[in-house]
Each structure stands twice: as structure tokens, then as C-alpha cells.
Design a protein around this nucleic acid. Sequence first.
DNA 1: CGATAAATTGAGTTTTGTCAATAAAGGTGG
DNA 2: CCACCTTTATTGACAAAACTCAATTTATCG
Lengths: 254, 254
Amino acid sequence: MPAMPNIKQETLSRHTRPPYSNVARLTPQAVNCQVCDPAGGCLSKQLLVNHQQPDRSLKTNRSIKAGEHVFREGDEFDFLCVVRSGSVKSYMVSDDGEEQVLGFYLPGDVFGLDSSNDHGRMSSAVTLETSTLCRLPVACIDSQNVTDQLLRLTSTQLQRDHNLVLMLARKDADGRLASFLCDLSRRYQARGYSSLEINLSMSRQDIGNYLGLAVETVSRTLTRFQESSLINVRRRALEFVDLQSLQVIAGAQA
Amino acid sequence: MPAMPNIKQETLSRHTRPPYSNVARLTPQAVNCQVCDPAGGCLSKQLLVNHQQPDRSLKTNRSIKAGEHVFREGDEFDFLCVVRSGSVKSYMVSDDGEEQVLGFYLPGDVFGLDSSNDHGRMSSAVTLETSTLCRLPVACIDSQNVTDQLLRLTSTQLQRDHNLVLMLARKDADGRLASFLCDLSRRYQARGYSSLEINLSMSRQDIGNYLGLAVETVSRTLTRFQESSLINVRRRALEFVDLQSLQVIAGAQA
DNA sequence: CGATAAATTGAGTTTTGTCAATAAAGGTGG
DNA sequence: CCACCTTTATTGACAAAACTCAATTTATCG
């Protein structure tokens, strides 16, 4: 591999501005969990809720502005979280003060599992845009029915982590970016949104921190993808032109 | 980052020979779980055992020769596993047929959590030397007491994964190797073995596959560490000379 | 409309991978 | 028990990918 990114001053995002919205975006209405659609993935059936006190555990939806923290590394582990609308990024700060993004979460995704009762949160979570979240207090987790559900959620998270490891260890910049974009497309599609025209809710810096690449490399690679007629990208607006070829790059490149 | 490793023919290990043993090694006696020491970390109290049928669930210790598979990707998820003696490596095979090592497990470590009832094992596990393992059938997991324990084990696994992500994304070859060696030292020490003189149970290839580096880079870096009087290394025999400096490299390098 | 931040682009450097050859160990079979 | 063969590890020369630094452009926000 080539030179590693050095300690830079501008690696930590500022979480300042909400992104503009001139392209297809995720803006479903925030709905109370008790009413939401069982097929959508974001609801009591997916969750580990003790139905003996559904009101207390589920009425915790709330809207959060862009750039606000849901929790921080070291915080007490008192709730799991589901994205209802918007998007969230999870990250850790490494020893040298760099931000390592661990994942991006879209509506329906559960996050906050990487925590322990002993040491609290092992990562921080921050919204990338105005979002609504559903908090599920750990205390409300139903211990009767928990095993299967918890294992399932956990294995999803582990699978994501393993995918990231695989990308970082085995793919070059092209492969990582292609993988990243294809994954986004797939996830949006699975949620019923357009899979060919999406709005990136994260900055180039975020993407770089996620994929272990310098911002410049991210930018250059996206430009090159566009020149090769694989995508059209202008700032945060992304259009897939040749998804199939992109998938080939994502899979083949290593 | 520099050039990515390409598809090579010799990346998959053969799992053939047991390592030689001229240096301090881990060779504790295999003990029936029902008798083992509660402080050691490898026992029913750490595990999620339904004590109503302890015999069935715990009498599954068995010795495994070097290079044998404990399970393979896609296998049914029917048991968790604890290392009693020896060592185990976990890996996935990427699209291009490369082996990505996800972790190494030492005595007391629990592995096999990265599985789901739906899709089975998401990684394979193979012994690096003759080892004894304790299998814990999923069916025997006690649903009453499971939540805390399972979350704890899970969070440990997630933490390991996150550490690996951090290494891969943010550290150069020196930092990765230093981190890897320091981590080994720490883990051996935590288990009551010498932390200054250990025997590497994994090959250079395994290390490279774990850290996302070419074998040659692993070899060169170890040689350079030795020239800098940080370690003494001859084949699998490793001696720490200046652990502190190594930790500095592990932490600082990015 | 100006200021700040994000994104892009260019030139040059460094790290690490690739290819190839050699050496050292360990296991196997006669 | 020794010789051979296979596997693992080491070392050198070269090439390529990605990073760094620096400057510029484009957005967005106040």
C-alpha cells in the first residue's frame, strides 16, 4: 500500500451545516413506532421490546438537528437506537486524534450495539442531517425473547464490520469507493427509494475517514468514475450511470 | 496508501504443520469445563450455560490437531466456542479468493459469535496448533440470564473488530505490526504467561492477511524492528526488547 | 456580498506492493 | 538416521498507488 495518511488538522468534521437538498432525499415522516409498518424494519417486532410497557419504551421518538450527537464514546449504555428518518454516522477517535468512521446508518438501521455495560459506548454517533430516531432503553429489552433477536442484530453489525475490514485490507481506492457506492445504492433500494439517484448525506471527508483514504483521493476517484461514465456526481448529488460496471470494480479490485 | 496487494496464488495457508516449540508456549492442560477455574475466564460462569443440563453442554471439550477446521463459512450456527489451549484463527475468503484473517484467539477467548441463525457462520475458524476447545451448543444457552452475558461477549468481539478497522484504516506497516505485537504481549500477560518471550503460532502469511500487508512487508518490518533493537525474532520465536518504544510506534504511527 | 468551509486539481514524494531469487526449516521417505 | 523436498521466510530491485502540500474553485451561510 502507498503512503498512509498523516495526522492532519482538518480531519474532524465540524458537523455544522445541514446539506442542501436539490436531489432525491430521504425524508419520510417520523412515525410513532407503535404505528409504523412491520415490513419497514423499524418497529417493535424487529426490536427487543418488552410489550408489557410499550408506551414507555416506544414513545421516545424525537427529531434531531444535523450534526448533533446521539451519544459519545464512553457514555452510559442505556439505549439502542433505530433511524426513522435522516442518517447517522458512527465513529471513534483514534489515539492520534483522527476520526475513524465505522459506519453510516440509514432509516431502519439499528445502531448503538457496540457498547458494554462495563465500559459504556465504544463509539460516538452523530446525525448527518436532520433526523428522527427511536430510542429503545436497554431496561425495556425483553429478556424472554431476547436471544434470537439480539443475536440477529448483533450478527448484522458484525457483518458490516467484517465487510469494512475486508474493504480496508484488500481493496484499493477504486474498489473501496465502488463498494461504498454500490452498498449505498443497494441499501436505498431495499428501503424503497431510488437506487439510481441519491443524495450523499456525508462529506468527502467522512467518506475518506470511513474508507481509510485521503479526501483528495476520494475526490479524484469520483471524478475519474464520472469521466469513465460510471456515475454523475456534483457535490452531494449522485447518479448511477453504469451500476453493473461499478459492481465489477467493487468486486474485482483488490 | 501505496499499492494494494494483488491476487496471489499462495495466499491461502495450508494448515499443515504444527509449529515447533523451542520457546515459551501456551500448553496448559485441557480441563473439563466443570472443573476449570472461575478466574480463568473459561468456564460456565463466563458462558451462557443452562445449568439445568450442565453435563450435556459442557462435556464437549475435545482436542483438535493443528490446521483442522472448527467450522466453515456457511455452516450451521449451533455452538459458541472457547479456546482452552492452543490458538485459533478466524478468516473469511473474499470475492477474489483471498483469505482475510479476522482475528486470532488465545486460551480463554470466545469465538464463533459472528454467526446468525439465518445465514449460519460468516467466517471460518481453524486451529493454528494442536488445541483443545470447549463447544457451547446454542441450544443450551440459558435465556434467563442471557442478555448481559451475551451483550458482554458481543461487545468484546465488536471491540476487536473496531480495533482492526482502526489499524487498517489509520496505521502504516510499522504501526500495524507494532500494534499487533503489543496486543499479543498484552493478551499473553493477561493469561499469566510471559509477555516478553512468546511463540508466534501464526505464519507471516497469516499476519499479513490479518494486517492487510504483503508477506514481504511483514518480514522486512520485523527485521527492521530487530535492527532497531525493539525485538528479537527468529522464525516463530519472538522476544520483546523494548516494549515501550514499540507501544509508541503502535500508538503514534498513522 | 463577503467569509468560511467543502471540494477539486496539480506536482512531487513516499510507502508498499510485485517479481524474482535465495536461504533456512521441517517433514517425509528410503 | 540421513538426504531430499516442500514450505516458510528473507532480501533486493523496481514499479505503482496513494499521500502531502499547495493553490484554486465552488457552495453555502451570515
